[in-house]
Design a protein around this nucleic acid. Structure first.
Length: 223
DNA sequence: TTATGGATTAGCT
DNA sequence: GCTAATCCATAAA
């Protein structure tokens, strides 16, 4: 019995991730993150950032291989989950061949299925479509919506549908790809390594502006 | 051994 | 606009 709205999602090959994080980040836009919970959760990737490894001052691997970041030096396509500010988890996928550091941080997802479960995990009520970005817009939020923790998901193989957490593709083609500087970092904050689908409401930082008042962010004035 | 601050978010002024 | 929340890797001592 096939559900009428079921869309087939195919896993990405490991070779997809065995490349420069910039390339992987760009091509991850439009792909789908899947959580095989009791109810399957799926969401489209709409915002990511590339972290380049040992030569990138903003990367966790800048100081070399440690117990915390070793997944980023391991084989590509695996989850690197870290805990930040004492409150939030963030999800990355390892890139580059084994032995070489590099990764992509997930910053924004557009929910496709399992929205009820995501709202429950986030502890919020979705009253209208304008509330949806509160579920998965931002690295900490999307991790909470998907129940991602370091204990549960770090080092998980994201190329295998047998994993609880994995990345796949349907037929969606990303459009309006845009590149901007990365957000929230203090080192190497000038490099354009943030990739997003322009205009998508699930991109963090905009569409969720705290205040309508003053739009002083220079990067959103282009075009 | 102790100190510092971060790839964030929510809530208050 | 500002900052508390609150853990842990890393630096300093």
């Amino acid at each position: 019995m096939r559900k009428s709205h079921t869309v087939q999602i195919r896993p990405l090959h490991r070779a997809f991730f065995s490349r420069d994080p910039r390339r992987v980040a760009r091509e991850l836009l439009g792909k789908v993150l899947v959580r095989e919970a009791p109810e399957r959760l799926t969401a489209r990737i709409v915002e990511v950032e590339a972290y380049l490894g040992e030569k990138d001052p903003a990367s966790h691997t800048y100081a070399g291989n440690t117990a915390r970041n070793s997944v980023l030096f391991g084989p590509p396509g695996h989850a690197y989950v870290y805990f930040i500010y004492g409150t939030h988890y963030c999800l990355n996928v390892s890139c580059e061949p084994e032995g070489q550091a590099g990764g992509v941080l997930f910053r924004g997802l557009e929910p496709l299925s399992g929205i009820e479960e995501m709202a429950q995990a986030r502890g919020i009520e979705v009253r209208s479509t304008t509330d949806l970005p509160k579920l998965t817009s931002g690295p900490g939020r999307l991790s909470e919506a998907f129940g991602i923790t370091r204990a549960r998901d770090n080092a998980c193989d994201l190329t295998s549908p047998a994993s609880s957490l994995w990345i796949g593709e349907d037929r969606y083609r990303a459009q309006n790809v845009r590149v901007t500087p990365r957000i929230g970092i203090t080192k190497a904050a000038d490099k354009p390594l943030r990739y997003l689908l322009d205009g998508n409401p699930f991109v963090s930082g905009k569409g969720l502006q705290k205040r309508p008042g003053r739009v002083s962010i220079p990067q959103i004035r282009s075009k």
